[in-house]
Design a protein around this nucleic acid. Sequence first.
DNA 1: AGAGGCTCAGAC
DNA 2: GCTCCGTCTGAGCCTCT
Length: 994
Amino acid sequence: MDDRKDSTETNTTWDSLDDDAVLSFINKLDSHNQIKKNNVKKEVLTDIDTDVDTENDDEPELNDKPQEGQSNDDMLYASIRSSQWSSMNDSKFINYVNKLTQSKQFDTTIEVENTSYNDVQLLSSPILPGQRKIEIETSDNNNDDDDNENDENDENEELPYDQYDNYEDYFAEKNRKQNLQGEELSKFLKANDDSGNDYPPIFKNCAIHVNGRTDPDILQLRKLILLYGGKYVHYLSSKRSVTHIVAENLPPRKRIQFGNCKVVSPKWIMDSIEAKRLLDYSLYRIEKLNDYGQQIIKFPKRDIVEENGEIVDDNIDDIDNDQLSQELSQELQNTGIDATHPNFLKVFFSKSRLHHLSSWKSELRSNFINEAILALQSKKIPQNSPQRIIMHVDFDCFFATVSAMKHNPPIDINTVPCCVTHGGKSADIASCNYIARQFGVSNGMWLSNAKELCPNIVSLPYYFEEYETISKKFYQKLLSMDINTILPVSIDEALVDISYLCSQGDQNVEKIVKGIKEGLDSVTKCTLSCGAGRNVLLAKLALRKAKPNGVYYISDNNDQIDEFLKTVDVKQLPGFGKKLYQKLNTFYPNKEEITVSDLKKIDKSSLINTFGAKMGAKLYDYARGIDDVSIDILKDTDKYTRKSVNIDVNWGVRFSTDPDVETFLSRLANELSERLLNIKMIGTSITLKLSIRHTDAPIEPTKYMGMGRCEFTSKTAKLGVATRDSGVLGSELKYLWRFMNVEPKELRGVGVSMNKLTQDDYNIDNKQMKLNFTSNVNLKPPITNKSPSPESYHSPVKTSRSRTGSPVKDDPEEQIDWDVFNSLPPDLQLEIKNELRRRKLQSSPKKRKLYANDKDIANLLSPKKKKLTMELEKEQYLSPHKIKEQKQKNIVFQGIPVTDESILLKKLVAWMDYTLIDNNELNENDLELFRDFMIQILSSSDTLRFLRIYQTLKRRILISPIQESKQFNKWNEELESLKQLIGEQPLSDFQFKF
DNA sequence: AGAGGCTCAGAC
DNA sequence: GCTCCGTCTGAGCCTCT
């Protein structure tokens, strides 16, 4: 089975083969393996649904009714006990498992029991490759449990089920035998292991082996483990794939293949060559975190250095079992990798080309520009050249060139069509070379589409570090020249003022530019192109002409410029995209290609009418070759200071519940806070941007984990105080999320944006500031090492005027020392945040605008909307014979059917908060409507739902920061009377806790 | 008229 | 086997004051 891996690794250089050769090679191997497989009579259940055993005689009935107070595990085990599962054959068992696990009664989140490593008895150890052959005498002395043996032998090897009265006894006996085997193996290994390695316990009783990648089956597998009684699962994972899962305390059962997952016995592990290889592979790889950081077991005494330079901590005592279990269940919960994973952001950004592009750019804008300013100032280049010459220099298909060069073996960019992608059919092409472009391939295209156009195209991986390295050389080289100024455009592109250089020597601009290009070529070992002209516009247009691998200069002569512009397609103008083209098209409805000369014919006022004041004027100038944009970084420093910090995630966003989203928002807040810290800035305005699946778009877009067609919406909150405190940002984002009222399942993208930025210098100044809201919260002065001024104890809230010594109550400008804030206990923090919110809502009239949203509960509860609801409610009396479900659908509150429970609860909670926290009036009519609604639920015998709603509100009111107000009392009364309602119900078989 | 929020387009 | 569709800026248009 592993022959394939070996031969590919040792005998073949994959990279030298073209796609076809690789394919035929793989096919050969596959057919070879197929033959081998067919010689073995074995049940492989790859497609469970289609292979249903019709003989269901001994298949237990599934009890579909979940019972109150039982955990999922309880139910599973109860289900196992009550069934004769042990007497089933594999196919029946799997079938049964499937039914069980696919039925809705099992939550997908199953707690994994924690065990400490110390409690685990070392019964066996992994087998090192190339070591002596292992021979172990086992009690039943069967040697046929390896991969090639057949099922009937397996059957014989099993303990006879019928000899045992119950599962427990059978289990105990089987377990005893297994343990015996394990002990012997352990003894043997200990006796023969002279390596001095102290391996952690890996195998106890049984192992589940997942042969291949993480896939949707993993969830099923997780349940399977539970069904087998596995209490704790270790899993060893390599990059992107779980290769091995080892579960403790699995009751023995013969090997089972489940999809591509296997449950194997320890004996199999002992005997199987495949297992040894797997272990070897795992042991080697295990040191490396997989993409999502699910590194589980750390091996001591092994000095393996992580690829990206991080040295893995080898201390086995550091293993955090809680975290381990958590990560594991998280992994198994997710059928794919999506934004619910704790490490999603980190991994996602590390692989996102667009993110890299952006961070490189901002890095250049801050660090490089500063460096360049110093370098340029020290050079004292005369700025009084007779003519200004701007050069736009850019790598030819940068990513493709560098990836091809750094690939092993290197790809000849000039002969082989290639592109840079993550691989896969809907992977975006980040960059493709000019050979590929001849086939019609272009950047941004999906790989599958590119392959249709160019079947031989080679897909290269990203080498982000290499791009940076080469870019550095590029910029250093540019800086070393006598340039007037330089404006970095992106990692591979810069605008350079070469006026001074061109005024020296023989003053042949084209020759000078060519010299620069060749210098850059040789430094970077790539090819670049340069365009030059009297301004940025012309430089950019010239660059288009120069590409690839060339230079072009538009002479500084009005006639020649006009001549050049005539033929230029308007789409080449910088900033002129699809939408502007559509607008321009109204002037020339039938023209195929609109050129700049066509644009020039349109008078200025028409342009301004069509494109707006600024854009119209700009286009008017562009048509005449005029562009006065400056690239002088020495002069306009203000222009290059950051105005906003954004985080956008529009890939992998798949949430099912509000808490999922809120957790994610917290992570975004942390990330945002970190990024702000990096640039030492704070802000007063935060925006939440949501991408919501378009109603016409399919639930799952064609692009894997993509966003598909979406509608966009955003909402801004003013913070009232400049901060980057992640807690504040997080709760602000959650607050916005709540008010935007979006169904979590429909979310396809989330973005946050921090605006109104200022340099963070207040942090240094105000270490001593304290918090205190005298009315609500009694704060003890925090203990500080330094002795604060007496004043700071009494005026802990910093106001703009407090500096001058007269703190003013309720000043909206108040500022909080977040360091002090963070040192407070969480409950106090919460109180303070709520207090802040209350003040802000009252002090900032803009905030009210949130309530003007027509989705908001406050408006839904207005009389106009109420009528609508009444009409909806009337409908339900029209058809008395509807089935229960339909009847329930007609129980509606504010347009939300009771069946949309999560939306309903969200709305109710928002309503409650609106009245409690934000201290708005609780309308008597609204309350009545709500009461009617609850009574309807109760009379439809949907007591559980009634309870859930009740309990949600009850919990909410219990944690409400406002515990004493008119509204609070009203709500309390209302909930109390709802509670009474249940008491009147005839149904008494429910038990509830209030 | 000016300020500010939301949205969109465009660039890499 | 899928795949990493971010981030900044400026303009236009709207509403509120």
